[in-house]
């Protein structure tokens, strides 16, 4: 492996996008915290709000790396998480070719776009848990299990530390839901690939 390739492999650029009020920025912050405080890596966060000025889309740009990050802006993410149609439309084209796309299944319609994706009904699951605003935490759990970009323990600790006091347990439950969903999805894909669809 050459130096440049190695450098590439060590750095992951992520964009999480959705609309205001979904806790997109918080999700970005938790992800960065997990990477730095839990996994002892470097991380930066660039937040861009703009519910009014930019059609409601807001985004968090997170970079995670093993070496110091000189430039925190993310142009072409390795991982793109879309929690709104607007976010998908704005950032969908920027994802790297081999990148990983995660969407909220009920909120994003991809139409003709047939790229591989990991879909979860995060908002619906949050509603079932009785708190729609926890969709971001469910998505974080999903992101953690599907991509492994942060370790599950670091992510859980960061969630517990970042949410309002008294809601830790609920949020960890939400995180686990998303995490389990991701794990089940990966398992299902493995099984399907080995030719086992049903019971």
């Amino acid at each position: 492996m050459t130096e440049t390739e190695k450098g590439k492999a060590e750095k992951t650029e992520i964009i999480i996008t959705g609309f205001g009020g979904q806790g997109i920025i918080l999700a970005g912050r938790i992800l960065g915290k997990a990477a730095t405080l839990g996994d002892h890596r470097e991380s930066t966060l660039v937040q861009s709000y703009g519910p009014e000025s930019r059609g409601g889309a807001c985004s968090a740009q997170v970079t995670i790396s093993d070496s110091p990050i000189p430039y925190p802006y993310v142009r072409n993410p390795d991982i793109l998480v879309c929690m709104s149609q607007g976010g998908y439309e704005k950032f969908g084209g920027l994802l790297r070719e081999e990148g990983t796309l995660l969407i909220d299944r009920d909120l994003v319609r991809m139409g003709e776009d047939d790229r591989p994706r990991f879909a979860i009904p995060a908002t619906r699951m949050a509603e079932e848990l009785g708190r729609k605003m926890m969709a971001n935490i469910i998505m974080l759990g999903f992101l953690t299990s599907v991509t492994g970009v942060v370790s599950p323990r670091a992510a859980r600790d960061a969630v517990a530390e970042s949410v309002p006091k008294g809601t830790e347990e609920m949020n960890i439950t939400a995180f686990n839901k998303g995490f389990d969903h991701g794990a089940a999805l990966l398992k299902g894909r493995r099984k399907k690939a080995s030719g086992k669809t049903g019971a």
């Binding site: 979860i120 009904p121 699951m125 839901k177 389990d180 969903h181 794990a183 089940a184 999805l185 398992k187 299902g188």
Partner: peptide, 8 residues
Amino acid sequence: REIEKGAV
């Protein structure tokens, strides 16, 4: 419990 994890 297992179905709840999704992807099924």
